[in-house]
Design a binder for these strands. Sequence first.
DNA 1: CAACTTGTAACCCATAACGTAACAGGTTAC
DNA 2: GTAACCTGTTACGTTATGGGTTACAAGTTG
Lengths: 95, 95
Amino acid sequence: MKMHNPPHPGEILRELCIEPLGLSITEAAEALGVTRKTLSAILNGRSGISPEMAVRLSLAFGTSAESWLNQQSQYDLWEAEKKRKQLKVRKLSAA
Amino acid sequence: MKMHNPPHPGEILRELCIEPLGLSITEAAEALGVTRKTLSAILNGRSGISPEMAVRLSLAFGTSAESWLNQQSQYDLWEAEKKRKQLKVRKLSAA
DNA sequence: CAACTTGTAACCCATAACGTAACAGGTTAC
DNA sequence: GTAACCTGTTACGTTATGGGTTACAAGTTG
């Protein structure tokens, strides 16, 4: 049911990619081809992982872009679900 | 390998939800709690499915919000992958 | 102490989702 | 047949967010 608050993907990026390799934000940002600010914002949860960034991560770390983007989706969805009860939506099908 | 050009999620929304129920854009938009314009833009591929919209679709059609958002991610990723070769990214790990 | 590096914040711009209002086309009513 | 209405779409403004440039606080090293 995956019902626990998911961490923002930047946290995972830091713990699984940046720290294990002993990289500084500056080094990683240069390799990714973005500014230090951009990477810093992601790592601190003030930006999400955009589709282009997912491809960059895929290139730099050899991971799948899809997994990064899916993690971001799960996080965004978790935030959106908080407002589910406030949305006035009428049911359309019995499915 | 899912290597074919994915349709935009609005197309799927139209074919799997709107048309089978014989709904007009106006009717469906009202039920979803958005304007006709907003739904029209999605159905014609000029807007993506936002996290909030995914929750709305989930409420109205009894589907999973996650599946809508994942479809959108797959579509966005397909677009982003087109520029993969143009991104100047340095490889950081041998993984 | 001075020069440099590191991470973050302030500011600006581009893009995109959403709403309001206006539009073109087709029905329907009179 | 023309006037009222409904449908889907477009034009425009607002708001939110990713990203770059620049400036700043904190450390580090000559």
